[in-house]
Design a protein around this nucleic acid. Structure first.
Lengths: 229, 229
DNA sequence: ACACCCTAAACATCCGGGTGGTTATGTTCA
DNA sequence: TGAACATAACCACCCGGATGTTTAGGGTGT
């Protein structure tokens, strides 16, 4: 029982349970014990045991099953839960919008190519609608931006890579949320420029609809070359 | 007070507090109220209020400050916390290791190019050491893999994009954790193949050390072309 | 003025006692 | 036999009280 100082009882108990899993060489799906058992063994209160269980559940190491024969079981590993836990250790870092934009752009080819491979009839129909909306939105930078985000989000919805989708959508949400504050109408985006952006997106959407992977990749390249978004 | 059915009191209270923030048009850093105030207003117990506060804190919408003059404050948006929350909504999805590998590869160019731009003397020294270790590790697939992961993690340590680093490192951790189970010694990787991989990595590391962005990007391309890792 | 201590306000953690819901295992009756 | 019902073993959620810890602000002495 490791139990260092400056750890809450729940955290200590969680650590103990984790080492128990290791010591007893338990695999996914195996029963570790019931909460009442841990309560008797540790002498802690109900809430403390419950907190430890919650911690381990959040970490993705344990699965809690109610009902008779229930209890704490070793969870089968889940990539997303692990990612959540890992991000917890870096949440204090000062991430900027620029960082988010960089990550988003890095994921763009993956998202677009996946979309070209998996698009359904419904996807195609939706993309056409969003594309015509984008064409009509060249009157104002603000409208154009919103239509643009909507299009990109819809493209991201297509992919079967749920992990990539989650990260990508998080990035776009962050960027929109954080940049709507500082927006002193950058008038360098003329109507001509917006029309050019529309063409770039039109080609991207057509490539996705055609299901042409190489063409989609090329369109993404063109999409990124001149400016952001 | 929205308070739909099938919501716990803590969740309902959290929703109420969120709409309070919106209604009162509070900005980051503004005080929402103290837990005791919410306790008096809602009539709920301490644990319930505390749970609601924990929920909002996890979501990144609220910051909890102890001490006199403390209480619940509107948090300043943090990209990583948002990402955590978004991932919560997708945690049930059957994400696979393949998804994680795809995301990792998509981020690879960003990470490598950033490394080429920001590497310090210490970074260069470490990379050289890890590279010689990798050259010596061609005797066994297992040793090679570990040396390879160590090298890639060290490269990722260089970047100033904390967000990209966090996601990238999460991916590699997930991949290593999940693939160590199923590892029936793929002997298709001959020593010759490993030596080829070493060359690819050597070029990548040299490009980063040289600080040559174009060369680094090209090396990453070569790195991805033949197989994973 | 300035440094020091003291105190009140607020959260953090914990406890044990409830109530209710969920699930598997009987158990009974047609 | 088999389907409906009862029960026991679980967890989920809630409460209010108790005891720390942390923080800001005020007071006090040189």
């Amino acid at each position: 029982m490791v139990n260092a100082e400056s750890l809450t009882r729940a955290e200590a108990l969680a650590a103990d349970i984790e080492s128990m899993i290791h010591d007893r060489e338990l695999g996914p799906g195996d029963l570790i014990g019931t909460m009442d058992e841990f309560r008797d063994q540790s002498g802690y209160g109900r809430a403390t045991i419950s907190e430890a269980a919650r911690l381990l559940n959040d970490r993705g190491t344990v699965e809690i099953r109610p009902g008779r024969g229930g209890g704490l079981f070793v969870a089968r590993p889940n990539v997303i839960v692990r990612l959540r836990h890992t991000l917890l250790t870096v949440r204090k870092m000062p991430a900027t919008v620029a960082d988010a934009i960089a990550v988003r752009e890095a994921l763009e080819p993956l998202i677009a190519v996946d979309a070209a491979q998996h698009r359904t009839k419904q996807d195609i129909s939706d993309l056409r609608k969003l594309m015509t909306a984008l064409k009509r939105a060249t009157t104002s930078t603000d409208r154009f931006m919103r239509a643009n985000w909507a299009l990109h989000e819809r493209i991201a919805e297509i992919t079967h890579n749920h992990l990539a989708k989650a990260v990508y959508l998080s990035m776009t949400r962050c960027i929109t949320d954080l940049s709507e504050h500082a927006d002193p109408d950058d008038d360098s985006r003329t109507e001509d420029y917006l029309r050019f952006r529309v063409e770039v997106h039109a080609e991207l959407v057509e490539a996705i609809i055609a299901g042409d992977v190489a063409r989609t990749a090329a369109a993404v390249d063109r999409h990124h070359a001149p400016a952001q978004i």
